[in-house]
Design a protein around this nucleic acid. Structure first.
Lengths: 333, 333
DNA sequence: CTGAAAGCGCTTACAG
DNA sequence: CTGAAAGCGCTTACAG
């Protein structure tokens, strides 16, 4: 069975394809098509199961009702949850989401943007990485709606939705200090993105404010692409060599690796060592003992992103950029 | 800056768009375009940053180099990991993946298939649900490559890649019995999909084979869409009312809810109660004590799926359908 | 060795 | 109240 085209419908209804097109697109009343014709054509469409070819429509109109979502890694629960929420919300407004992971690889990210461009997506939601500045600037120059989230990119004037990472790590360290901890370690990654440096800055600032000198030896920067075994070895070293009494993990996957390491040692979490993980995860609630975590308001973040992009998509004029920053909560367990 | 078209390149190079098209598509040698022209055109393309409009290409050729992936829920780690693996592998072969979640909602799933159809995706990878039989049959009739995974749909003759769920739960129960457990409970969902019923069947058969009578009261079927609090209440009842000494969870999210419930009780996992979870999850490794889990070979499943679909995409003739079933492993912790 | 032209399936300015 | 026709940016059979 060949798929139907608008022409088939027009022929069957005995009208022009123009008329059919107006009806499909809800412009029939505008164009004062007679009720009788509308009814007849709608009936034929419903009975035949005809669906307009979106490719042809996109080629003609230049847009697609698709929003491109570019994230770091779909298998990280922070991103998969955000993706799911955004997908749900966009879907209700008639937009589809296509998403893909950059894996912090600039080349892959550029290709993704190009792919989305050549597919004529209507807007972009991007969790960006360094090296993408030009490509994103180009999208802005082409006046495509762009929302950055989780982290922004210095030097780009865009919409942004995220959490206050600085404040969250500041308060995490503060809570360690109030528990009487002195040797507070930070395990983070080497990737040079804003939300990671903010987390480091919050950590440093809190130490200084509470009169603790910043000690480089207490900070472990893990390479993003290294094997987990290597990461574990580095953590083992960190935990054994110094009398660390608290550790803040800057990402949930680092915290998970860290907990695996700690499980092998005699270190008692909560007793010898306080732990906070950045970005909550089911592991932390179920862990014995429970692991405290920084919880970003995922639902609110997703909602803000989708509201922002929808507003831009439906606006004819260029809107002012907005920066929306939510506070993260520390869940004490 | 207007985006460039093939015409712009042709004008600039002083050749026809036909020639440019041949060069872009690597048919230049075939069509015996002179080396000089090839060089010149390639240079202009590289310098201008021209990218062919994929929409126009799709409209013309009828395909898109896109594979549609339809899964149950991207925020479930089983699916997000599979998605990530498939994405990686497809990407290396020049295919892009677009994916979306059905949430076990037939209407949404049908719409997704329609959306993918109207976007002219080249092939479909689907983790199906009941009620999709006709839509999938239609894809097959249109001779689109379709790979079902995780579960097949009775009555459809398609390619399928999955794990032997029956065997996995059979062996799980067997391992309980060998530990001396007698009152073995199953917590599963009410969704009527093949991989879930197979898990129930394996459970039943193992009991029978070992001379234990099947007791309905030991089986809890949780509604897919119910609140987690409700699920927890049901589990509490199950765990308290009977002298259950082992529990097999048919999905990882049920196991996670169950562990939360058990954490509140004085039941000692491993001592009073043996636990196995279906589909591994980071939670289980880190849990104290470790939770045994059925581990499907994700990497092999993803590889098989992608091999199958690529073979079909590149074949001119209709290939025989293949059913590939992997054994799952029980990880004892 | 290369090009003119048809056509993929739509939308829309224009005409009547 | 309705339709003929141009055009979105490609690919490819055909012709020379």
């Amino acid at each position: 069975m060949k798929t139907l085209s608008i022409k088939d419908i027009a022929v069957e209804a005995g009208v022009s394809i123009t008329t059919v097109s107006f009806i499909i697109n809800g412009k029939a009343r505008d164009k004062s098509i007679s009720e009788a014709v509308i009814k007849k054509v709608e009936k034929i469409i419903a009975e035949s199961g005809y669906k307009p070819n979106q490719i042809a429509r996109s080629l003609r109109t230049g847009n697609s009702n698709i929003i491109g979502l570019i994230i770091e890694d779909i298998s990280n629960s922070f991103f998969s949850r955000i993706a799911r929420l955004i997908e749900d919300k966009a879907y209700k407004k008639g937009y589809k989401i296509i998403y893909s992971s950059t894996e912090n690889n600039v080349e892959k990210a550029k290709e993704l943007i190009n792919m989305f461009k050549s597919r004529k997506v209507d807007g972009y939601i991007i969790s960006p990485i360094k090296g993408l500045e030009e490509d994103i600037q180009q999208l802005l120059t082409d006046s495509k709606p762009v929302i950055l989230f989780d982290r922004s990119l210095p030097g780009l004037d865009t919409n942004y939705v995220g959490a206050d990472h600085f404040k969250a790590t500041y308060e995490s360290v503060e809570s360690f200090i109030k528990q009487g901890r002195k040797k507070i370690s930070l395990v983070t990654t080497d990737i040079d993105v804003q939300q990671i440096t903010e987390r480091l800055d919050g950590y440093k600032k809190a130490l200084v404010d509470y009169g603790i000198t910043y000690d480089e030896n207490l900070v472990l920067k893990v390479y993003f692409n290294q094997e987990e075994s290597e990461t574990r070895a580095q953590m083992e070293k960190l935990f054994s060599n110094v009398e660390t009494d608290a550790v803040l993990f800057a990402t949930n996957y680092l915290a998970i690796s860290g907990l695996k390491v700690l499980k092998q040692t005699k270190i008692k979490i909560g007793k010898n060592l306080s732990v906070i993980a950045y970005d909550d995860h089911e592991v932390f609630e179920l862990h014995t003992p429970g692991i405290s975590a920084v919880q970003q308001p995922l639902e609110e973040i997703a909602e803000a992103i989708i509201q922002l992009i929808l507003r831009q998509l439906s606006s004819k004029t260029k809107l002012d950029n907005e920066q929306i920053v939510f506070s993260a909560k520390i869940i004490q367990r």
